[in-house]
């Protein structure tokens, strides 16, 4: 089974689950954490609930995470005053569960986010710079009359790293830089946007949730989740 963690209203997640029906794909949403059946314990096999059904961890072949956390607004079935607490608890459970799954997980969680690091735009710029990728400076200004984030951008191109594949451009220099950033961030799935400045591609931004409505990207993700990427 391929598990897709997403908000239950995430249309892309449900479309992927349909497309991947042959691999028994299903969406795990916040509602599934309010069903008897979850069991995470020392030394025993974990059990989860996916699409309202109890699933043994051994039956899960891969996980794709399309949500940074469980949000309060997803918890309409929980009493209003408890939603904030329950959202934090559910996120904490998923973090733990995802971290110890042995199957492919895109992306692995960090303590701060269910999928990859929870970095600010400024930190992505610094990590790219430290990884030897030319960067476009970012300026965040907080003044009472006009608080904003600015980054000069000319024409941009977005590449998507999926494991060892890089999609979106045939330019090997861009591919190499995108791959370098994904490695620095310790993620396997990453959209990286570059802008051209004086004919030099500069890093602009990164996103651990690429556009999966793009069939090529979705195909590469499925390939990764099924363990079919060439080494």
């Amino acid at each position: 089974m391929i598990v897709i963690i997403a908000n239950r209203r995430n249309q892309v997640a449900h479309a992927l689950a349909q497309q991947w029906a042959a691999w028994d794909a299903a969406v795990l949403s916040a509602q599934d954490l309010s069903v008897a059946g979850w069991s995470l314990t020392d030394g025993a096999t974990d059990a989860a609930v996916v699409a309202q059904q109890r699933v043994d961890e051994r039956d899960i072949s891969a996980v794709l995470t399309l949500a940074p956390c469980i949000f309060e607004h997803e918890l309409g079935h929980i009493t209003l005053e408890d939603r904030s607490y329950v959202a934090a608890e559910m996120t904490a459970v998923l973090t733990f569960w995802l971290a110890r799954l042995r199957c492919p997980v895109l992306n692995r969680p960090t303590a701060a986010r269910l999928s990859g690091p929870a970095w600010s735009p400024e930190k992505w710029v610094r990590v790219a710079y430290e990884a030897g990728v030319p960067v476009e400076s970012i300026c965040r200004t907080a003044v009472p009359a006009d608080s904003k984030v600015e980054q000069k951008m000319s024409s941009t191109v977005t590449l998507t790293v999926v494991g060892n594949r890089v999609l979106g451009s045939d330019d090997s220099r861009l591919q190499q830089r995108a791959r370098r950033l994904a490695q620095a961030a310790a993620v396997e799935l990453l959209a990286v946007t570059f802008a051209t400045v004086d004919s030099e591609p500069h890093f602009v931004s990164a996103d651990v949730f690429p556009n999966l409505s793009d069939e090529t990207v979705a195909g590469a993700v499925l390939e990764y989740l099924r363990g079919q990427q060439a080494a």
Partner: peptide, 14 residues
């Protein structure tokens, strides 16, 4: 905070 302003510029330096 309403009497606080911050400008943060990040690129090759912070």
């Amino acid at each position: 905070v309403l009497r606080t302003t911050v400008e943060l510029i990040v690129g090759s330096s912070v």
